[in-house]
C-alpha cells in the first residue's frame, strides 16, 4: 500500500527539499524580518521603491542559481519542459500571475509562511487553490482532455 502510494516519488529528496524551503523561510524572517513569499518578493521588484529592490533581485538570482547548481553538483537530470500547448502556457501564466497578485500570495507565502503564522487568510487561500487545482485537473485533463 505504502509502496504504491509513493511509486515514482523520491521520499528522501522530497522531504529534504521541503526542509530546505523551510530553512530558507526561517532565515529570511529571522535575519531580515521578511516573509519568504515568492509572489510578494518578486512582484515587488516592479512596485516597491528603489531602496527595497536590490534584496529582491538577489533573492531571485539565488533562486535561479540554486536550481542551476543543484543539477550540476548532484548530477540530477534537468526536468523535461512542459509539453502543454502554446495557448495553454500563455493562459496559465497569466492566470497564475493575476491570481497570486490579486490573492496576495502563492504556495510559499500562503502555503508555507502564512499557515505557519496561523493566518486564517492563508489557511483559507491554500485550501482553496489546492481544491481548485484538483477540480481543474479533473475538468481539463479527464473531462476535456486539453492538458
Amino acid at each position: 500500500m505504502l509502496e504504491n502510494l509513493f511509486a515514482g516519488v523520491n521520499v528522501y529528496y522530497s522531504v529534504t527539499g521541503g526542509l530546505l524551503i523551510g530553512l530558507s523561510a526561517t532565515l529570511l524572517l529571522l535575519f531580515n524580518g521578511r516573509i519568504a513569499g515568492i509572489t510578494g518578493i518578486v512582484f515587488g521588484i516592479f512596485s516597491q521603491p528603489f531602496g527595497d529592490k536590490l534584496w529582491r533581485w538577489l533573492f531571485l538570482a539565488g533562486l535561479i542559481g540554486g536550481t542551476l547548481s543543484l543539477h550540476f553538483v548532484m548530477d540530477m537530470p534537468i526536468p523535461k519542459a512542459s509539453n502543454e500547448s502554446l495557448p495553454i502556457l500563455i493562459v496559465a501564466g497569466f492566470l497564475v500571475g493575476f491570481g497570486t497578485q490579486m490573492g496576495s500570495g502563492c504556495t510559499s507565502g500562503h502555503g508555507v509562511c502564512g499557515i505557519s503564522r496561523f493566518s486564517n487568510r492563508s489557511i483559507f487561500s491554500t485550501v482553496l487553490f489546492i481544491l481548485f487545482g484538483v477540480v481543474s485537473m479533473l475538468l481539463f485533463r479527464h473531462g476535456m482532455g486539453v492538458i
Binding site: 523520491n10 527539499g17 530546505l20 533573492f59 535561479i64 543543484l70 548532484m74
Partner: peptide, 16 residues
C-alpha cells in the same frame, strides 16, 4: 537574501 534564495532554489529543484 541571496543565501535564502539559493537554499530555496536547491530545495525546489531537489524535491522535483
Amino acid at each position: 537574501a541571496i543565501f535564502a534564495g539559493l537554499v530555496f532554489g536547491i530545495g525546489l529543484s531537489a524535491s522535483g
